[in-house]
Design a binder for these strands. Structure first.
Lengths: 210, 210
DNA sequence: ACTTGTTTAAAACATACGTTTCAAGCGATG
DNA sequence: CATCGCTTGAAACGTATGTTTTAAACAAGT
């Protein structure tokens, strides 16, 4: 049996934050191990390589997130209440709120990581994520279509990505944006308030006439 | 007087594409100079440093774009026709179409660069861009508010960024998304078609009830 | 044609990085 | 207590990177 999973977790914690803040290439293993207070070699010992560490960070994050999202979607499916776009979006938001409760700025970190994975054209990361967690996205798409059956699948696909763009982009930069908002308009907006401002925007966009 | 601006332009051309494709840290000066068929040292000779080269790439791109966008906005302001959200968005799209005509996949390259600049929290790049070209964004915001006067400034600010998220995210990944769309739904969507699908989505989102 | 300022070429430099190595440390098992 | 597998520590290795250097090539002015 393994003695210390603590080192592994410490590395993941540090890597997660630094990757989100600076990016993958810009974050050295030395920066990670220094922050985690572990030895440099322990990364290669526990994860094999830097690339595998990056995947492990995504796995830990996405495993939790997709599990909870999938649960929300199944509950929605079983419920007798009619599915609306707002409900589907709430089901997506709920796991994010959970993340934010478990970790300070968790949403921002999560979204920054997602954005970076998305930006990787060449890298295997994007393929890895879509292959491993693509089924939840399909599940989500299915609910979306159920909420808006008159929209054909191709348009659901595109509008889904319009929504993801808004969400990932805004929440990834939410800290900076909230600071600007505060200095310009004098009122600090919480992440949860912000999210509940996005939902009507997205829902209205989904319902737009083609 | 300078003799050869050609080397400088060749470097910018190569750097622009590679930065958009792979990112800044992932693109070496050697990769750039090889692609541009120039000597390695010429980057430091003409631009001083890699960081300055990155800024120069943004400058060339944003100078053209903001100039044309600013012109569109001024025309709109002078026109007697009432300003609508759709019109403002068209004014934003128009310079993008121009870019795409001047350069293959120009929109995607431009948006990928913008996305990367946005993702840089620590780097000076984001601050550099916002300080140098922020006035055009303010101009754009002003028109948006004129098109929708009942929305208070703080909400205009947020919804503007919701829209930017959709645009940058979708258009940055448009090549991959259009391939998925083609294989899943059998129809290839052109960039221009795609853009004209986004506009009603964004406009409806802007008009959403709070 | 010679000089001068600018640009290119090739090589070298210093450094930061991911990875590997190997010895020491540790914890449980017999 | 001795032994064995797992984990940590410190150092070194090889390599790729941004930058600098120095000389050659070049264009233009007188």
């Amino acid at each position: 049996m393994s003695k210390k999973q603590e080192t592994k977790a410490r590395i993941l914690d540090a890597a997660q934050v630094l990757f989100a803040e600076r990016g993958f290439a810009e974050t050295s293993l030395r920066a990670i191990t220094t922050r985690a207070n572990v030895n440099l070699a322990s990364v290669n010992y526990h994860f094999g390589s830097k690339k595998s560490l990056i995947q492990a960070v995504f796995d830990r994050f996405l495993a939790d997130f997709t599990k909870e999202l999938s649960r929300e979607l199944r509950l929605m499916d079983a419920s007798s209440e009619p599915v609306t776009i707002e409900l589907v979006l709430e089901g997506l938001i709920e796991p994010l709120i959970t993340i934010n409760k478990q970790q300070a700025n968790g949403i921002s970190i999560f979204m920054r990581l997602l954005g970076r994975a998305y930006a990787e054209t060449q890298g295997h990361l994007r393929r890895y994520v879509t292959e491993r967690y693509g089924h939840v996205l399909e599940q989500f798409t299915a609910q979306l279509q159920k909420a808006y059956p008159s929209l054909d699948m191709s348009q659901v696909f595109w509008r889904l990505h319009f929504m993801l763009g808004s969400l990932i982009f805004t929440l990834a930069g939410s800290e900076a944006l909230r600071e600007i908002s505060e200095s310009d308009f004098g009122q600090k907006v919480s992440i949860e308030e912000l999210i509940h401002q996005i939902i009507p925007f997205l829902a209205a966009g989904m319902r737009a006439e083609a």
